[in-house]
């Protein structure tokens, strides 16, 4: 087996709640190499963020339980590693950017303070050295007047600038893997594009592996190398960007692509996947997507479709992918 930078292997996570067991992740596998961008696409509740939190080791446990699988980082399993060792990787080698920068930054510390903390804790630097590094980083993420603003508090920044602070903090120690959990969802469209450009530039400069979690197909197309589409805790299709957009092999992916507004479909009603995402407390038997699927047969209700190879580096979990891909 060739060694990847990050290798999530058959991961299972469940949440034991008062209402029952929610099967959040049901056998997710994906790999990431240096300099590569993997987009994880899916609706809310599809398990894309839970996977990321499990990689980071910031899943709330309990109620979360990892019931199976491995997460290999440079060949070492993060899940069996002692916490002290994992703490050194967390933030320094695998870093994460969160969606809502206002609540994700601590309101009572200056932004400089929060960036400097990375250097103080991981690199043993003094507060003063850390603050100098913070100014550096704020300049790298293109915050105007970084020197003056380093002593400002998070609430004194606009949403876009605040997200840049989050990014500066995440890349501060040159991580090998950067996980961006819906980094642009809380921002308006023009700012979204700027943040995505920034992330892409930083990733190229530093040759980071990036996992971009999103539900926005538009964001994905420009930046991702490959895409994993998640539905109800499973990866239903994964491929490189062009293959996936050109030849979707899973009915869910197809539905997602069809529901995107297009310039040439002006005036027509927008397509929508019928039905609602299933409750994780009571997943439908067989293929989880079957209640909403236009290609459903009897088999789909009784058997779980295996992940099949559609083409090179292109897999789909559908019995009838040939029919779907033919369109």
């Amino acid at each position: 087996m060739s060694e990847h930078l990050l290798d999530v292997d058959d991961l299972y996570v469940e949440f034991r709640t008062r209402d029952g067991v929610a099967e959040a992740i049901n056998g997710v596998s994906y790999t990431l190499d240096a300099g590569e961008t993997l987009a994880v696409l899916g609706e809310s509740g599809s398990g894309k963020s839970v996977t990321a939190q499990t990689i980071m080791g910031i899943l709330d446990m309990p109620p979360g339980f990892i019931t199976g699988g491995r997460i290999l980082y440079n060949g070492k399993d993060l899940l069996t590693m002692p916490e002290s060792e994992r703490q050194k990787i967390r933030g320094a080698e695998i870093a994460m950017i969160f969606q809502d920068s206002l609540s994700a930054l601590n309101p009572v510390f200056t932004v400089g303070d929060q960036i400097a903390e990375m250097f103080q804790v991981h690199r043993g630097m003094s507060k003063k050295e850390g603050m100098a590094k913070a100014v550096d980083l704020m300049e790298q993420v293109r915050i105007p007047g970084a020197k003056e603003r380093v002593k400002d508090y998070p609430h004194q920044f606009s949403g876009g600038m605040r997200q840049r602070i989050m990014i500066a903090m995440a890349i501060s120690l040159d991580p090998k893997v950067l996980i961006a959990d819906e980094p642009t969802t809380a921002l308006d469209v023009t700012v979204q594009a700027q943040i995505m450009d920034l992330l892409q530039d930083l990733q190229r400069e530093r040759n980071m592996g990036m996992i971009l979690i999103t539900h926005d197909l538009g964001v994905v197309a420009g930046v991702a190398d490959k895409i994993a589409v998640m539905y109800a805790g499973r990866i239903v299709e994964s491929a490189n960007v062009w293959d996936l957009y050109a030849k979707p092999a899973h009915p869910y992916t197809q539905g997602l692509l069809d529901s995107m507004p297009r310039v040439d479909s002006k005036g027509e009603e927008l397509y929508a996947i019928k039905g609602l995402p299933p409750s994780l407390l009571a997943l439908p038997p067989g293929c989880n997507f079957n209640p909403r699927c236009p290609h459903r047969r009897d088999k789909c209700v009784h058997e779980v479709p295996p992940t099949e190879e559609v083409a090179e580096d292109h897999t789909a979990a559908c019995f009838f992918w040939k029919e779907v891909a033919r369109g």
């Binding site: 980071m56 910031i58 703490q87 050194k88 990787i89 967390r90 933030g91 320094a92 870093a95 994460m96 969160f98 809502d100 609540s103 994700a104 930054l105 601590n106 309101p107 009572v108 510390f109 903390e117 990375m118 804790v121 991981h122 903090m169």
Partner: peptide, 24 residues
Amino acid sequence: DYVRTATSKGLSRRRVIGRHAVRN
């Protein structure tokens, strides 16, 4: 959320609680 961020920065639990959560 900011406590989760502090954890994801690789801070010790002691520092996450003592510095980030208690202060607020």
